[in-house]
Design a protein around this nucleic acid. Structure first.
Lengths: 351, 351
DNA sequence: CCAGTTGACTAATACGTAACGACTCCGAGG
DNA sequence: CCTCGGAGTCGTTACGTATTAGTCAACTGG
C-alpha cells in the first residue's frame, strides 16, 4: 500500500473559499438535505466553483464517515476468474452484473483474493470491506468464513444454499427437491424399480436436497426405501467399469447424477457404460439433477436447468434490500428450475 | 448515499487498548516500517488482540490517508456490460482480469456509469476515483473526458490508440499499419491495381492507421495514389447494391474493410456482392483489416487478429507501472497482430 | 418595542488510519 | 558521574467529508 502519486485534487474547503462560504455549506449543496434550505444565490456560486475547479467528491472520505459507496463486491470461493465464457459460473456473473448496473451499483471483483489462496480473511483480513456488501459464489466454501461474516454483520448474499448451524444467512438457491422428485416419479411410471443417486462428495446442501427429492419422489410413487441406492463420487476417476456393471447387476436400471461444474463424473459414467456394452437409455436410464453436458447430434440429456442468470439478478436484489433497508433480517429465496426432457431415459423393458 | 447499517467494526484503538499499547503501535505492527523496530513481545500481544477481536483494517481510512487501495477500475465507453461471451470486448476483459489477479489487484467494473449515460464525469463527477487507476476501453469515446482525466492527473491506460492534441496519454494499441501494408503488397502481387479501403465513420485513429498502412503498402508496391479509393460507411444499411457494383464498374478489384464490433458492414458487403452476382474472391477480393466474421465451412476471411487478451494484460501492466513507479511519464505500447490467411482474396484474372 | 420564529449559514466534531517528531528508558563510553 | 545514542513507544496531526448544535440577522404578531 504505497502512497498515491499525482497532483492533489480540489477539496470542499477550496470550493468553499472560492465561493465565499463555509465547507459545511458546500456539503449541503452537494447532498441537499430536507429541512435545511440553501439560498438560491449561494447554491449557484458553489456550483460555479465546483465547475471551475473540477471538483469531485472523495469516495474514501465519504466511506470513512460511514456512508455507503454504491459498490457491490463479488467473491468466488474457487477460481471463477478470469471470466471464461464456457465457465459454469459465467451466467451467474452476467446476472449479477446486469442487476448491479440497473440498480446503479458498481461491481468489485475480488480477483486477488482467489489467487492469494487465503479465502475471505486472507490479505489485510477481510478484503471484502472495500464494498458495501457482497455476493458470494462457489462450491468449495469455507463454513468458518461464512459464519464469521455473519457474526461480523457484514451484508452478503450467497448463491446456493448453505446452512450454518446457529446462524441464519441470506441466500438465493435453486429448488432441487421438486424437480428431482418429479423425475423419480416419472422413472417409476416408466417401470423402474431400483434407482441410484450418484452424489458429489463435496458441496453438501445441494446433495442433501437432491437426496430429499429422491426420497420424496419415491414415497409418492410407492417405491420402498430399500429400492433406493445412494453412492458418492469425487470425480471421473471414481467411475470404473466394474463399479457400473456392479450397479446394473444389482438391479439398478436408472441413475440420477448430481452434476459437477464440468460434468466429468456424468460423462465418465456414460462413457464407461457404453464401453461395457450398456446402451443409454435402453439398458440404463441416466438423468442429471441439474445442468447436463451440452446436447450433441444424437443425445439430449434429461435434466433440469438452473436459472443462473436470474439467480445472479436475484442475489443482487436481495443484497440491495439488505443494504438499503435498515436492520433487515437475513433473506432467503428459492427459485424453480425448468425441466429439460431429453432422450436419456426410457421405459424399462424387462428382458 | 445512505448510512451503513450493522454493528461497528473494531478499530486500531480498541486493539491498542486490549493489547495495552497505543494506536500508533498497532499501526506499526500492521505495516512494519523500515527503521522503526517494534519489540517481539509487543508485536505478539498486538497480533493476539487482532486475532481475538477479528480486526480488519478499514480501507476507507487508509485511502483517505492517500494510500492506494489495490483496486483497478475498468471503464468502457459503450455498453460492454454485461459481459457477454459473443461480445467483441470479452477477450480484453479476460486479459485485464487475469493480469489484475496476478498482480494482486481487485477489479472494479464501472457498470453504473454506462447505464447512467453520463460518461466518466456523470454521477458524483468522476466515479473513477473509487479505484487507484483505470483501464479505459471503447470506440465511442469522449475526447473531452480523456483530456480532462489527463489534466487531473488521474492514472489510466486506454486500450486502443487515441491522440489528444496537446497532451500525452498512456495506451496499448494494435499495429494496424504494418499488416495493412503487407496485405496491400500481397494484393498488388496478385495483380490488383485498384484497391478500395472502406472505413468506419467512427473511431478515427484506427482508421487513420489503416489508411496510412494502405498508402505505405501502395508506395512499396509501386501503386499510384490515384489507384487507391477510400470510402466511408456508418453501418450495414450504407452498403447498397448500386454502390458495390459502382465500385466494381470503376475498376475496383479488391476491398479492404475496416471492421466494426459486429462486422455488420463487412457481412452486408459480402451479401450484397454475392446477390449482385459477384463471386468472392474470383470477381472481388475482400479482406478485413482486423477481426473478421467467424469462419464458416466454405469461407475463411483473410484478415488479421488483434491480440485482445494480451492487450488487456498489457494495459494492466502499464497501469500498475504508472501506479507503482513514482512520477512515471505516460507509457505507450504497440503490439503486433497475427495474419489470418483465408480464401477471400485471390489472383486477379483479366476477363 | 419585544418575545418568538424562521431562514441561512457556520464552527466544531467524528470517522479510522499512517506518519512525523518527540519522548523515555537503559546500557555503554568517557 | 555524566553524556550519548539507539531501541522502543507514544502523542499528535492530517486526510476530506457529513452532521450536529449553534449563531445571527431578519421578520412576525401582539
Amino acid at each position: 500500500m504505497r502512497k498515491r502519486a499525482g497532483p492533489r485534487r480540489p477539496t470542499q474547503v477550496e470550493i468553499a473559499q472560492r465561493a465565499g462560504v463555509s465547507q459545511a455549506t458546500v456539503s449541503l449543496v452537494l447532498n441537499e438535505r430536507p429541512g435545511v434550505p440553501v439560498a438560491e444565490e449561494t447554491r449557484r456560486r458553489v456550483q460555479q466553483a465546483i465547475e471551475d475547479l473540477g471538483y469531485a467528491v472523495n469516495p474514501a472520505a465519504r466511506a470513512l464517515r460511514g456512508m455507503t459507496v454504491k459498490t457491490i463486491g463479488l467473491y468466488t470461493f474457487e477460481s471463477v476468474f478470469p471470466v471464461d465464457q464456457r465457465d459454469f459460473y459465467h451466467p451467474f456473473l452476467v446476472g449479477v452484473e446486469e442487476e448491479a448496473a440497473r440498480l446503479g451499483y458498481d461491481l468489485l471483483l475480488f480477483t486477488s483474493a482467489n489467487t492469494a489462496q487465503g479465502g475471505v480473511y486472507a490479505r489485510g483480513r477481510n478484503a471484502l470491506l472495500k464494498a458495501d456488501g457482497c455476493v458470494l459464489l462457489g462450491r468449495h466454501i469455507s463454513r468458518d468464513d461464512l459464519a464469521n461474516l455473519v457474526k461480523e454483520g457484514f451484508p452478503f448474499v450467497f448463491i446456493g444454499r448453505r446452512d450454518i448451524e446457529g446462524t441464519e444467512l441470506s441466500y438465493v438457491a435453486p429448488d432441487y427437491v421438486a424437480p428431482t422428485a418429479a423425475l423419480v416419479e416419472e422413472l417409476v411410471a416408466l417401470g423402474h424399480q431400483r434407482i441410484l443417486l450418484l452424489r458429489q462428495t463435496e458441496g453438501a446442501e445441494p446433495g442433501e436436497d437432491r437426496e430429499l427429492g429422491l426420497r420424496q419422489g419415491a414415497l409418492a410413487a410407492g417405491l420402498r426405501p430399500d429400492d433406493l441406492v445412494v453412492e458418492f463420487s469425487s470425480g471421473a476417476e471414481d467411475i470404473g467399469a466394474d463399479r457400473v456393471t456392479g450397479w446394473v447387476r444389482a438391479g439398478i436400471t436408472a441413475i440420477l447424477v448430481e452434476p459437477s461444474e464440468d460434468n466429468a463424473t456424468g460423462l465418465a459414467l456414460a462413457e464407461v457404460a457404453e464401453a461395457a456394452g450398456l446402451r443409454i437409455p435402453d439398458d440404463l436410464s441416466v438423468a442429471f439433477l441439474g445442468s447436463a453436458p451440452a446436447p450433441t447430434a444424437t443425445r439430449i440429456w434429461t435434466s433440469f436447468e438452473i436459472p443462473r442468470v436470474e439467480m445472479g439478478r436475484a442475489a443482487v436484489q436481495l443484497l440491495v434490500n439488505l443494504l438499503e433497508g435498515a436492520d433487515q433480517p437475513p433473506l432467503q429465496l428459492v427459485v424453480p428450475c425448468t425441466d429439460v426432457r431429453g432422450n436419456s431415459i426410457s421405459r424399462l423393458v424387462r428382458r
